[in-house]
């Protein structure tokens, strides 16, 4: 791997407090093309402007904190390589996620999403078989290895509550009450047959019928949740219930 660094200009959305006027600041830095956008942001904070605020924690896509818009598209900054979003001498534009309240600069308040996930009691840990293997789409794994005691493995679910899907969703843009992709996916994963409260929510005005099929949620989801597919599957399930006059 070459050690040559690139010169990259970061154009970063700045705003101090939710009510102040936003503007953009430019920072030109030397950075290795194999490094990640989040590394660039942290470098800028460390050496260029200590007042910059941004969200981050795990730096490897397990926490979902560093969601932002990179050149207009929702990404986790920690897994977005510099080389994939610009070139030597190029620019990278960073903006906070849409459809969430702004805290400052690149930081939004994901509280509304966490609150809704809490309301639909999205499970914090799930059996392994409830999460498919890589590359198999939304299907249970063909062969789930068992623990030494024969019990199932338990793991943290795929959805990392990063909010990228909500930011990309044109319906969430104009409807604050819409449950949104991540929350509907959490309902789907738990099952509406087993959870009458979730059926009622999914089948409500702000549930699956609110979706306008832009499929942006699945396009930006960094974690293989495929919320759009799950919303459509919920529609199918609900229609099937209605046709069978199920209660």
């Amino acid at each position: 791997m070459s050690d040559e660094k690139w010169t990259v200009t970061f154009i970063i959305h700045r705003q101090k407090g939710p009510d102040s006027q936003p503007h953009f600041d430019e920072f030109t830095i030397e950075i290795h093309p194999e490094e990640f956008v989040l590394d660039g942001v942290e470098y800028i904070w460390a050496y260029k402007d200590r007042s910059l605020v941004f969200r981050h924690a795990c730096h490897h896509t397990t926490c979902g904190a560093c969601g932002m818009r990179v050149n207009g598209v929702e990404k986790l900054a920690c897994m977005t390589k510099i080389a994939d979003v610009t070139q030597d001498g190029g620019k990278i534009k960073l903006e906070p996620l849409r459809n969430f309240p702004i805290v400052g600069d690149l930081v939004v308040d994901l509280g509304p999403l966490y609150r809704k996930m809490h309301e639909v009691h999205a499970p914090e840990v799930i059996p392994l078989c409830a999460s498919p293997w890589e590359g198999e789409g939304i299907k249970p794994p063909q062969e789930t290895p068992k623990r030494e005691d024969g019990e199932e493995y338990i793991r943290l679910p795929d959805c990392i509550e990063c909010g990228l899907c909500v930011s990309a969703c044109p319906t969430a843009a104009s409807d604050a009450e819409y449950l949104g992709p991540a929350v509907l996916a959490a309902i789907h994963i738990q099952g509406i047959d087993e959870n009458p409260d979730l059926l009622a929510l999914a089948d409500s005005r702000e549930g699956v019928w609110r979706c306008h099929s832009a499929y942006e949620c699945s396009a930006v989801c960094p974690s293989n949740v495929d919320p759009a597919w799950r919303i459509m599957d919920l529609r199918k399930q609900i229609i099937a219930r209605r046709l069978k006059f199920k209660k």
Partner: peptide, 19 residues
Amino acid sequence: NWLLQWFDPRGRSIGGLAF
């Protein structure tokens, strides 16, 4: 912003453009 987000094609994928 919502109006802009309905129609702004920048950064949208195929599904979004179709929308």
